[in-house]
Write a protein that binds this DNA or RNA. Structure first.
Length: 400
DNA sequence: AAAGCGGGGTA
DNA sequence: TACCCAGCTTT
């Protein structure tokens, strides 16, 4: 019960000791019989209400692994088309290991958290190179792979290999927080152990994969963040928060800090029918993706000036800004950016990279072969349109 | 323990 | 707008 008395804060509203004490007093300890009932009700509900998802139609550990990686911090509906494409193109661990990183990132383009793709690719390479190309079915070996944390390890091992490891994700934390009126904040790393202990206690060792998926499915379909459908919940009889009328107070979380805003200028540098793209370093933000060169505005600096300066700094080219092309606003989880996009004309210099790890002069027609961040993708249609217009004008000029 | 890391969905 | 999502790694 350590940490139970931390005051904490939910959506900026201070929780008092009084409220906390009152809720806790209505939540009696779970007895073995309660836990048996809970498992039975949950699994019965799951059998009847589970969604038919492609990764639930297979026992292939590789496919299950890929699904779990795609699903971290990503909603099912978002991941679904990516999952199909990825498995169609890379149906086995060996195929993944044999693909080059650019191709893997291209399949991941737009999904975000690109370290997931890099780690999955690296892990596949490690298993294919050193091991026998099989996915480990034991905690120590699987958990040690890059990109495999406690969640992924528990999910893959329980679902693909029937190993008794309880998963703890955002859904499970929300269900547990309400079910047991857990007062520790769900968004603090210090609370992780607490939720894990609760999950371990409830896990049905006879059907760990189904139990884990049932908990998550309940969180996704019934015990939702806003407006949970308690009337449809198979666990309503043993839910402490529901009994206390306090479902809306859980899970508790501490306030997160405000996200900063950045202004960025980038240039589409043209030279004899081609444009310059650069590749970001493999680690860090958007690692390994391609983009148009540019960078942050300094305080008081005009976007045009920043564009010219950044291109000189990053690729050592002298350019002049011809015209503004677009302004893109884009929100990340931890920062917001405003992107000023300019058409630039190359005037002098030879590419020398300072920051980017690679560059290409490409035709716009080739641009879809490269993986770009979504903020870049948003103005790429404009470039295609300009290229088409330019071709049309050129064609008329020649035929006239 | 906290910060860094995407992008889309939702009320 | 602010929160949330089948989290992991680095600092």
């Amino acid at each position: 019960m350590k940490g139970r008395n931390q005051p904490g804060r939910i959506y900026g509203i201070e929780m008092t000791e009084t409220m906390e004490g009152k809720h806790s007093s209505r939540c009696r300890p779970l007895m073995p019989a309660d836990i048996r009932d809970l498992r039975r009700h949950l699994l019965a509900w799951y059998e009847k209400n589970r969604r038919r998802l492609p990764w639930r139609e297979t026992g292939d550990p590789y496919r299950i692994w890929v699904s779990e990686v795609m699903l971290q911090q990503t909603q099912v509906q978002t991941a679904l088309p990516y999952y199909r494409r990825f498995l169609q193109r890379l149906p086995t661990l060996r195929k993944l290991a044999g693909a080059d990183l650019g191709a893997v990132l291209k399949l991941w383009e737009g999904l975000g958290y690109y370290a997931r793709a890099r780690n999955l690719h690296r892990a596949a390479g490690m298993l294919t190179a050193s091991g026998n190309g099989r996915i480990p079915d034991r905690w120590e070996e699987f958990r040690a792979l890059p990109g495999v944390g406690d969640y992924i390890a528990a999910a893959v091992l329980s679902i693909a290999f029937d190993r008794p490891h309880a998963v703890v994700d955002g859904n499970v934390k929300r269900v547990l927080a309400r079910l047991r009126m857990i007062a520790v904040p769900a968004n603090r790393s210090a609370s992780r152990k607490f939720f894990q202990t609760e999950a371990d206690r409830l896990l049905d060792h006879r059907r760990p994969g189904d139990f884990n998926q049932a908990m998550m499915e309940l969180g996704a379909l019934v015990c939702t963040p806003a407006a949970p459908n308690c009337a449809a919940c198979p666990l309503i009889a043993c839910c402490c928060a529901h009994r206390s009328g306090a479902v809306g107070c859980y899970p508790r979380r501490v306030a997160s800090r405000a996200v900063p805003e950045e202004e960025i200028a980038v240039g589409v540098v043209s030279k004899s029918g081609r444009v310059l793209i650069t590749r970001r370093a493999p680690q860090g933000l958007l690692g390994g993706l391609w983009e148009f060169p540019g960078g942050k505005l300094r305080t008081g600096e005009r976007p045009e000036a920043a564009c010219v300066r950044e291109i000189k700094e990053e690729v050592n080219l002298d350019v002049v800004v011809e015209k503004p092309l677009a302004q893109i606003r884009h929100a990340y989880s931890h920062l917001r950016i405003r992107l000023h996009v300019f058409a630039c004309r190359f005037t002098a210099g030879r590419v020398r990279l300072n920051g980017p790890v690679d560059h290409r002069w490409i035709r716009i027609a080739e641009i879809d072969r490269f993986a770009f961040p979504t903020a870049n993708r948003r103005f790429i249609p404009l470039l295609k349109q300009r290229a088409a217009e330019s071709r049309a004008a050129h064609g008329r000029g020649r035929s006239a």
